[in-house]
Design a binder for these strands. Structure first.
Length: 493
RNA sequence: GGGGGCAUAACUCAGUUGGUAGAGUAGUUGGCUUUUAACCAAUAAGUCCUAGGUUCAAGUCCUAGUGCCCUCACCA
């Protein structure tokens, strides 16, 4: 991309330098007030002198007077620049200033004749000269590609974008407080994995030069977090950036944030309770307020009530309800598979249940608007989950659906090393058919289990999707500061 | 990958039946001491996404490409 600056701004930059002004001064302001704080306490502070820093968002100029709208992270405040109050040098700075420049203004707080709380500038400095024009002051930046590609412009020119990401931060902060309340430790586990596992997804690959070894970017942190359970860290969580080498859509980004948490000496029932607590905390942080006994969010034109407890439905019941037969009625399911043109690679085990699950995904999942917990999945498709002792066809697993999307996935974690080894070996055998199946057994993980992993519940939450629903944002790109984009095409230079 | 849509000034957008490229904002110049999308006057600013084609003539029609959006498929 060619580096280009606005010629008229370059001219003003030169004018500034010629008059002895550093357009990028090093010295920060001695003290600084935030616009929102000033406005909140304005009546009690009239007459006080404050220093404000921010970006000039609008200017209404007169001959010997100018009104500036100054924006900082907290909000906007008006500065009144009167020639009579300013030194000639400072007043002349207004001529060399453009919209978008970052300035420091020191002055007295006073309402204008129309009563608007303002700072009457006594002195000003240009802190940063901007060399490109900001977007149109009224419409802002509209082009969705440019908004995502130049999020730095989108953020300063669009208040609700900045607020959205402030809320995203607040949601994650509130969820951390839930974990702290329950004595969880926040941990960080490797992003570079010698083996990939913990989910079915195609990985990104990379290479470590010094060790001359191939590595994968993690598709899930699961297997490392469970090693920590073996080590005696009984309650751990990680906001894990994970990477999946798959397509993009309004709910898929190649890198996204997966919250995973594990609690020893519990099972998936505890994970349901925790998930409900986390959603509630997130909803509150997102600014949703209970009305008439309901906690409503609007997502893609539909209302969702986030009041816990959420509905629970057994996987088998949901299947039978929508497909019309029991998932264990082999001949009836076979007929349905034919009807839907789904091929089972085997008449039993993983191959069979994968096909039955495909049927579920096609016929049942689209009807799961949620919030709903789907409980007890076929054990054959849950290699990391503990089977139900009384009926081992099923595993202690749930998925949480909200807004028509899969938001969370949780198990009672399988801690039988021999059973885990068998499941891994079966997955590796499957990898020839399914490129998303792990291609190697993680023997170190088996060794860890062999030392004894406490029974535990574990859960993964797709943070970006949850935030989409909580904030009523239709596409994942709009809850990611820098969503994945194709590289900008190089222009001829 | 299939189907549909969009691409014009720094920004937001018009552009009729194919006939000289338009407006508002931002910029520049001048005026203005109470505006808040300030106002008045003047002025500068274009690879009409790219490459072909049809035509006397293409921003406009055709073909292909590129990018983005929507949608379907895929994404346990």
């Amino acid at each position: 991309m060619a580096d280009s600056f606005q010629p008229d701004r370059i001219q003003k930059l030169e004018d500034l330098k010629a008059s002895g002004v550093d357009p990028y001064p090093a010295t920060p302001p001695a003290s600084r007030a935030m616009a929102a704080d000033v406005l909140a306490t304005f009546e009690n502070c009239v007459g006080d002198e404050v220093t404000l820093c921010g970006r000039v968002m609008a200017r209404r100029g007169y001959g010997k007077l100018a009104f500036l709208d100054l924006a900082d992270q907290s909000g906007r405040i008006q500065a009144v620049m009167e020639k009579a109050l300013l030194s000639p040098e400072d007043f002349s700075l207004l001529k060399m200033m453009n919209l978008g420049d970052l300035v420091e203004i020191t002055g007295e707080l006073k309402p204008t004749q129309k009563g608007q709380p303002s700072v009457y500038g006594k002195s000003m400095r240009i802190l940063t000269k901007a060399l490109l024009d900001p977007p149109a002051k009224w419409q802002g930046l509209q082009d969705t590609e440019l908004r995502a590609r130049m999020r730095y412009v989108d953020l300063f020119s669009n208040d609700e974008v900045r607020q959205r990401f402030q809320k995203r931060s607040a949601i994650m902060s509130a969820m951390r407080r839930v974990f702290e309340k329950h004595a969880f430790l926040e941990v960080e586990t490797p992003v570079l994995h010698p083996l990939y596992g913990g989910a079915n997804a195609r990985p990104f690959t990379t290479h470590h030069n010094a060790l001359d070894m191939g590595l994968y970017l993690r598709i899930a942190p699961e297997l490392y977090l469970k090693r920590l359970l073996v080590g005696g860290m009984e309650r751990v969580y990680e906001f894990a950036r994970v990477f999946r080498n798959e397509g993009l859509s309004n709910r898929h980004n190649p890198e996204f944030t997966m919250l995973e948490f594990y609690q020893a000496f519990t099972d998936y029932r505890t994970m349901i309770d925790l998930t409900e607590s986390l959603v509630a905390a997130g909803a509150q942080a997102a600014g949703l307020e209970p009305k008439g006994g309901k906690l409503l969010t609007t997502f893609r034109g539909k209302e969702y009530d986030l009041t816990a407890p959420f509905q629970r439905v057994r996987w088998a019941d949901a299947f039978e309800n929508k497909v019309g037969c029991s998932p264990t009625d082999t001949s009836a399911v076979l007929a349905k598979l034919k009807e839907e043109d789904i091929q089972a690679s085997s008449s039993e085990g993983y191959g069979w249940w994968k096909a039955v699950n495909d049927l579920f995904e096609r016929l049942v999942e689209p009807t799961l608007q949620g919030p709903v917990f789907v409980i007890d999945y076929p054990a054959a498709i849950c290699p990391l989950a503990k089977p139900i002792a009384e009926d081992p066809v099923w595993a202690e697993r749930f998925e949480f659906f909200l807004g028509g999307m899969e938001i969370a996935n949780a198990f009672s974690e399988l801690n039988d090393p021999q059973k885990q080894l068998e499941n891994f070996q079966a997955q590796v055998a499957e990898a020839t058919n399914d490129p998303e199946s792990p291609n190697a057994v993680d023997h170190d993980y088996i060794r860890a289990l062999a030392y004894g992993m406490p029974p535990a519940g574990g859960c993964g939450i797709g943070m970006d999707r949850l935030i989409m629903v909580l904030l009523g944002v239709d596409t994942i790109r709009d809850v990611l500061l820098f969503p994945h984009m194709r590289p900008e095409t190089e222009e001829a230079e």
